[in-house]
Nucleic acid binder design. Structure first.
Lengths: 148, 148
DNA sequence: ACTATATAGTTAGATATCGAACTTAAGGAG
DNA sequence: CTCCTTAAGTTCGATATCTAACTATATAGT
């Protein structure tokens, strides 16, 4: 399979970029803030309203166990509120707190210089193409996973 | 003006794909084998000869602490041999064992059906373009990190 | 209504990962 | 030769992540 090495290189590049981007992000964040936690804050602020842990786990492609772990820490830091779902006693509803909104703003400001520099140095037209291709690949892998 | 959301979406896609690919890889691996460990085996087999832990850490863009952790487990499983560097008493030399070579082959066979299916369903010409763009992005981020 | 199955979350145990602090060894400046 | 700085690895404590097993609740089939 001469094509295997192409796929392998692709996933390898993707893995390294994910690693570099995440590490850089967390290096400039306020102490204790992680990409996973920021992603939760961002999701709740942008999409609004309370969400169930499972819905967020699905949105971020992580397991519910992972989401449970992250939310426990976020609730301890009072970045989110977690209440029982009144419509379903099995479920919970998570929402961002005022403290969470404030920290999200701080995070966005902290990463801004990097984003600005990257925007200047990377060809944005190329990035448009890239993100489109990545979306195709991501959708395929997700579908493939479900049907395997 | 700098389109932060475009960069954000790009890194988000990359993070999700890295996650999906790694999880799938480890799901089909022999018990206990991880992507990190396979990567070490592959590196030693393909490039040959003993390598220092630090050199591999740099090659994979992880910290030496991470490499130390992974190598400890691999040595315990006898997938690699680790000896002191006779030229430098601070350093070590890592090489793959026969057991490591054998397991690497098993891993490659295990992921083959996935690679084959993906090769069939993904447009390989698109993948060629994609991997090229990813390489550009990765090189930029790596350079940017060093010079920041 | 009862029972079987499905769903939402948690917990346990494992690996990978980071940064920071530490140990030991090498190399260079006086 | 001694001292200071750099370099290679390890250790520690933390987070994220997975799978597997568990609890509790909801829903469906008979």
């Amino acid at each position: 399979m001469p094509d295997a090495s192409l796929l392998f290189r692709t996933f390898n590049e993707i893995g390294i970029i994910a690693q570099l981007a995440q590490t850089r992000f967390e290096a400039v964040m306020p102490t204790g803030m992680t990409l996973a936690q920021f992603t939760v804050l961002n999701h709740l602020v942008r999409l609004g309203g309370p969400k169930s842990p499972l819905a967020m786990a699905n949105a971020f492609q992580v397991t519910k166990a992972t989401m449970s772990s992250t939310l426990t820490r976020m609730e301890a830091k009072k970045l989110v509120s977690v209440i029982p779902n009144p419509k379903d006693a099995r479920g919970k509803l998570v929402d961002v707190t005022e403290a969470g909104r404030t920290i999200r703003e701080t995070c966005i400001k902290a990463i801004e210089p990097d984003l600005k520099r990257w925007s200047i140095n990377l060809k944005l037209s190329d990035m448009e193409v890239l993100v489109g291709q990545l979306a195709v690949l991501r959708l395929y892998l997700d579908k493939d996973r479900a049907n395997r």
